[in-house]
Nucleic acid binder design. Structure first.
Length: 509
RNA sequence: GGGUCUGUAGCUUAGUUCGGCAUAGCGGCGGACUCUUAAUCCGCAGGUCAAGGGUUCAAAUCCCUUCAGGCCCGCCA
């Protein structure tokens, strides 16, 4: 069992170098450096440079990625956020003392600033002919191997900073993630939606069916839950008179961790007054397809061994029709007994459990259809029992005006015409509460304050939530959610003793 | 929760089938080298073979337990 300090990767020879530099009176961690150009700026401005040195000098800074020593001269690769550029350093130019200093103390991983002129080497590489260099930060941990880099998946997740230093693909994934979030925000901003922040610590959790994380407030002496969804608070804002609102929300669900689930994940939830679920399908299409174009420049993008096509309009199917089309089963042409036989034949889990047509519908859909929905597909008209916050369907008894977006077999979005009948909402909550009391760990609590809010009147409203992590997976061709979350939840490594925050005696009961 | 694979030097790894001195490259250290591109050449150091237990004259290798992770399945309406 490793102890926490064993995780420190300080390299003794590097620590020795720090000591030696200090003894020489060299500032190892200076406060600033006058960087005039990024690597990309230099490469762009001097794209046509020849073997002759540029007239004007440049100054840039970054991490040393590799050093190629040739005795009285050396080459090194310097990298900043925008890219890498080669350095050429000669003893003749910078003098014995500086040259020896570089040779002895600057190594892979250190951060330096340089000044010099640009030229192109005989082999055609754009290069900075260095005149001065300054140590800006001595790395006391050594980087992974220069050619293979860091390939250990676990280490890439646990020490993302190292992953980002050495793996450009990883940097690119997170650049795209950042861009996607910014594009979502910009789209909604441009279309008149207001962004709000609602409570993460909630006395009553709701808005989804999921197990919550539980916390505790010392001063208030009460239990608080980390939100599983922002839904019920955002709808309170619609009651309050805001008509187009959204939140880019981190949600917390105390459930399984696998390639599609992280305990904390990001969603954008959008509510739009005087709109319904059809409109929200349209909005979802518009947002997602515009992001695809911004990121990839076209609607067809590669994912795994297939091509996803985001060209609008996307396929829309009622759940009943989806089961008919993808599973070949006409739910309402069969009796419940026949459906049970079919469920058994198809080896569905818990085939004997379902008792109604609608229960079998959901069971067949989840068991046989979801995984086949590769291209962006909206499935709509969900049974009322599964959708306690959605408005009853205007024409289909027992169903709701709800849809989910599936891409590559993954649930990416979920929306509906929001239930705004406070009496019906109260009854639906009570049904959930009953399930919860009978042991359904994911059934919802009754949020009386939310019911009360509906009592003051919420206009007909459309709402949708889009899973940002999964969207990023699709747009960056990553199969695991851990690849698109900077610091995914990982089990802690050491079990020796639990560290707890200090306790204030005055708060103790 | 079930199945399966993986864990060897700072990094990338050979060795595990069939038990017999712990491999190499990179990196580090020392030396040579003034246009290299994973520079090249010579030399040196570097190991709790994930942890613990067992079998054996002898275990990285076989057996058991544990830890962490990947993948698949289940769970997630």
């Amino acid at each position: 069992m490793t102890s926490p300090q064993d995780n420190l990767a300080f390299d003794q020879t590097r620590l020795d170098k720090v000591r030696a530099l200090k003894d020489k009176g060299i500032t190892i961690f200076p406060s600033s450096f006058d960087r005039q150009h990024t690597v990309l700026e230099i490469k762009t401005r001097y794209a046509d440079i020849t073997h002759d040195k540029s007239a004007e000098p440049v100054s840039t800074a970054g991490r040393v990625y590799i050093v190629r020593n040739h005795g009285k001269t050396l080459f090194a690769d310097l990298g900043d956020e925008t890219g890498k550029i080669q350095l050429y350093i000669r003893k003749n130019d910078i003098g014995d003392e500086q040259f020896n200093l570089f040779n002895q103390f600057i190594e892979r991983g250190d951060i330096i600033g340089v000044t010099g002129h640009i030229f192109r080497t005989k082999l055609g590489e754009i290069t900075i002919w260095v005149e001065t260099f300054t140590l800006l930060c001595k790395a006391v941990c050594s980087l992974p191997e220069k050619f293979h880099g860091l390939t250990d998946i676990e280490k890439r997740y646990r020490q993302r900073y190292v992953d980002l230093i050495v793996n450009e693909e990883s940097r690119q994934t997170f650049r795209i993630r950042s861009r996607i979030i910014s594009l979502i925000r910009r789209y909604l901003d441009d279309h008149g939606f207001l962004e709000f922040e609602t409570p993460i610590l909630q006395p009553v959790y709701g808005g989804a069916n999921a197990r919550p994380f539980t916390s505790y407030h010392n001063f208030l002496d009460q239990k608080l839950f980390l939100r599983i969804a922002p839904e019920l608070y955002l709808k309170r804002l619609i009651v309050g008179g805001f008509e187009k609102v959204f939140e880019i929300a981190r949600n917390f669900r105390n459930e399984a961790v696998d390639t599609n689930h992280n305990p904390e994940f990001s969603m954008v939830e959008i509510y739009w007054a005087y709109r319904d679920f059809e409109d929200m399908m349209g909005l979802t299409e518009a947002i997602v397809s515009s992001i695809v174009i911004e990121i990839h420049g076209k609607f067809e993008i590669p994912f795994e061994d297939t091509t996803l096509n985001f060209q609008r309009p996307w396929k829309k199917l009622a759940m009943v029709d989806a089961v008919k089309e993808y599973a070949g089963i006409d739910i309402y042409a069969n009796t419940v007994e026949q459906l049970r036989d079919l469920a058994q034949q198809n080896k569905l889990e818990d085939w004997e459990k379902s008792k109604t047509h609608r229960e079998f519908l959901v069971q067949f859909f989840e068991g046989l259809v979801e995984e086949k929905l590769i291209q962006p597909t909206f499935i709509h008209d969900y049974p009322v029992e599964n959708s306690p916050l959605a408005k009853r369907h205007r024409t289909k008894e027992g169903f709701t005006e709800r849809f989910e977006l599936f891409i590559h077999g993954m649930e990416v979005g979920n929306g509906f015409s929001e239930l705004n009948d406070p009496v019906d909402q109260k009854a639906r909550f009570e049904e959930q509460d009953e399930k919860r009391r009978l042991g359904d760990v994911e059934a919802q609590m009754i949020d009386y304050d939310f019911i009360n809010a509906l009592g003051y009147g919420m206009p007909p409203t459309g709402g949708v939530g889009i899973g940002i992590d999964r969207l990023v997976m699709l747009l960056t061709n990553n199969v695991s959610i851990k690849e698109v979350i900077l610091f995914p939840s990982m089990k802690k490594l050491q079990e020796d003793g639990e560290e707890l925050p200090a306790v204030d005696a005055s708060e103790k009961k």
